[in-house]
Amino acid sequence: MATDIELTGTSGADAYGPDNPAPLIEAPRARTARTPKATRTNFELYGWLFMRLSGIVLVVLVLGHLLIQLVLDGGVSKIGFAFVAGRWASPFWQTWDLVMLWLAMLHGANGLRTIINDYAERDNTRLWLKMLLYTATVFTVLLGTLVIFTFDPNIR
């Protein structure tokens, strides 16, 4: 199978030599005009730290939330409009839910950002997936914040 292949390159029209150099294969990491510039910021550092710190806080917030909502005092059957209205009358629970909303959304969004960076192969796919992610995150965070602060228990 290999016998009919010209290996020496000394004969034939396609032979590589000083006048007909072999094509140059560029190293994937080589600096080109399209290579993104070094950012020189600490964004990735802060992102990494945020994941660890928010994770620790979220363990308390989310497990506490689940315990109160689903286990204690009658469990899930007690949850209704009145229950939510009662809780959000207190600034403590407003703050708890607000912090949980922000941390969980940003924690999840940053996690998904790294997954998209890892697994989206084409630049365009990566861009659009991240745009979608950021839009959804901003929308959810703003809507949730709005609801927590403008909640009206007398609505009908």
């Binding site: 993104p36 070094a38 950012t39 990735e44 550092l45 992102g47 790294t114 890892d118």
Partner: peptide, 12 residues
């Protein structure tokens, strides 16, 4: 450290 602090550095 500055080089490894970037997007494709140790934080990945």
């Amino acid at each position: 450290l500055e080089i490894l602090n970037d997007r494709d550095g140790v934080w990945r």
